[in-house]
Simulated scan of single mutants.
Amino acid sequence: MLKIIDKYILKRYLTTFSVMLLMFIPIGIVIDVSEKVNKMIENKVPFKEIANYYFYFIIHFANFLFPIFLFLSIIWFTSKLANKTEIIAILSSGISFTRFLRPYIVGATIVSFGALIMGFFLAPKANEVYNDFRYTYLIGGGQEEMRQSSDVFRQINDDEFIYVSNFNMISKTAFNFSLEKFKGDQLEYKITANRIKWNPISKDYSMFGYTKRTVGQLGDVIEKSDKKNAKFKFDLDDLTPTVYVAETLSYGDLIHFIEREKRRGNANINVYLTVLYKKYSVPVSAFILTIIAVAVSSMKRRGGMGVNLAIGILLAFAYVFFDKIFGVMAEKSTIPPIFAVWIPNIVFGILAIFLLRNAKR
């Protein structure tokens, strides 16, 4: 009897979540197309690039909003069970509420594992393509955002600093490049270039509009060239704006990248740590949101399913609001990133315990 009920609830859990996800993804695509179609036409974006963008947009969209979809899908089908008094019948047969919750936890485990795999391996590639497309082809919002957030100034070791004004991930080209080499507190030389391009075959950089100024005691030595190839100690990721780096790295690459940036004393380290910790916190939210959704929707209310959905939407957007607010605080404030990232789960975890106890009564 219990196995039949478990399979029934688990099937409804996964099916409703999948259907809601598949139902809202086309809506997200339509909205995105309506916002960007004029810019795509104006910039004559190739159809191949558009198709590639929207393939990865689906992954980006699903990864970004899956907590809301999961929460609302559980509210939906559990409210239907409650309205048909199926839950009352199950509990009246002697099954405890905790036992009734078991197939929901199994479903949350499956969804959480999928979210973990997506966050570790699929979402980074999707975020890379998503950001590349916006910053390369879109005027207004995309390129404007890129101008505001693309300035990169980094210390690559104890004596060398680099700067670029913006970076194109597709062409592997950075603009307004400069490298300053110090000896103690004194500038030893400075290299500048209008643009610098990574050459993946030769594993070096081509600088265009190259100038090198070497500081001497009797006078500076200036070297100029229209084009010059050179190898440097920094990696391609060092030229990449903060908005790109952490979001586009797989789990293993992100770990190594953070370790390297810690050694360099990178001022943006909290941004990278926030992305890392969210890879764990988001899958855990599947369990918390599942418990809250079941506790809220398992009671048959006078207003019917509409009341449960209204409460569910309110709680879902409250969770997303908390997640965004504390995500920004983790990046910009002195609050430890791991604490700020986990605050929404802690707060809503306490809420889940309270609602679960209330539902058991």
Results as ranks from 00 to 15, higher is better:
residue 2 L to C: 04
residue 14 L to Q: 03
residue 15 T to M: 08
residue 18 S to Q: 04
residue 19 V to F: 14
residue 19 V to L: 15
residue 20 M to T: 03
residue 23 M to P: 05
residue 25 I to A: 06
residue 35 E to G: 05
residue 36 K to M: 04
residue 38 N to V: 05
residue 41 I to S: 12
residue 45 V to A: 05
residue 45 V to S: 06
residue 46 P to L: 07
residue 49 E to H: 05
residue 50 I to P: 02
residue 53 Y to C: 00
residue 57 F to A: 01
residue 58 I to Y: 06
residue 67 P to H: 08
residue 70 L to C: 06
residue 72 L to T: 08
residue 74 I to Q: 03
residue 75 I to R: 01
residue 76 W to M: 11
residue 77 F to H: 09
residue 82 A to F: 07
residue 83 N to V: 00
residue 86 E to H: 01
residue 91 L to A: 07
residue 92 S to K: 09
residue 93 S to H: 06
residue 94 G to C: 04
residue 96 S to P: 06
residue 103 P to C: 10
residue 103 P to W: 00
residue 105 I to F: 03
residue 112 S to V: 13
residue 113 F to V: 14
residue 120 F to A: 01
residue 123 A to W: 07
residue 123 A to Q: 11
residue 128 E to P: 03
residue 129 V to L: 12
residue 131 N to R: 15
residue 132 D to F: 04
residue 133 F to I: 02
residue 135 Y to G: 13
residue 137 Y to D: 03
residue 138 L to E: 15
residue 140 G to H: 10
residue 145 E to S: 10
residue 147 R to T: 09
residue 148 Q to F: 10
residue 151 D to V: 14
residue 152 V to S: 10
residue 154 R to W: 13
residue 155 Q to T: 11
residue 156 I to G: 02
residue 159 D to T: 15
residue 159 D to V: 11
residue 163 Y to C: 05
residue 165 S to H: 09
residue 166 N to I: 06
residue 171 S to R: 13
residue 173 T to H: 13
residue 173 T to C: 08
residue 175 F to L: 11
residue 177 F to I: 08
residue 180 E to H: 12
residue 181 K to H: 13
residue 183 K to F: 12
residue 183 K to G: 10
residue 188 E to N: 14
residue 196 I to Q: 06
residue 196 I to G: 11
residue 196 I to S: 04
residue 197 K to W: 01
residue 197 K to H: 02
residue 198 W to P: 02
residue 198 W to T: 04
residue 199 N to R: 13
residue 205 Y to S: 08
residue 207 M to Y: 02
residue 207 M to F: 11
residue 208 F to I: 02
residue 211 T to L: 10
residue 212 K to N: 13
residue 220 D to V: 04
residue 221 V to I: 15
residue 222 I to C: 05
residue 224 K to N: 13
residue 224 K to P: 01
residue 226 D to V: 02
residue 226 D to L: 14
residue 227 K to S: 14
residue 232 F to W: 13
residue 232 F to A: 04
residue 233 K to G: 14
residue 233 K to A: 12
residue 236 L to D: 08
residue 238 D to P: 09
residue 241 P to T: 03
residue 242 T to A: 14
residue 243 V to H: 10
residue 244 Y to G: 05
residue 246 A to Y: 05
residue 247 E to P: 10
residue 247 E to T: 08
residue 258 I to T: 05
residue 261 E to D: 01
residue 262 K to R: 14
residue 269 I to E: 10
residue 271 V to P: 01
residue 273 L to F: 07
residue 276 L to E: 09
residue 278 K to R: 15
residue 282 V to T: 14
residue 283 P to N: 06
residue 284 V to L: 15
residue 285 S to Q: 06
residue 287 F to I: 05
residue 296 V to S: 10
residue 297 S to P: 01
residue 297 S to W: 00
residue 298 S to F: 01
residue 308 N to H: 07
residue 312 G to A: 00
residue 315 L to G: 09
residue 315 L to Q: 06
residue 316 A to M: 01
residue 317 F to R: 09
residue 318 A to S: 15
residue 319 Y to Q: 00
residue 322 F to C: 09
residue 328 V to L: 15
residue 331 E to V: 11
residue 336 P to K: 08
residue 339 F to W: 07
residue 340 A to R: 07
residue 340 A to T: 12
residue 345 N to D: 08
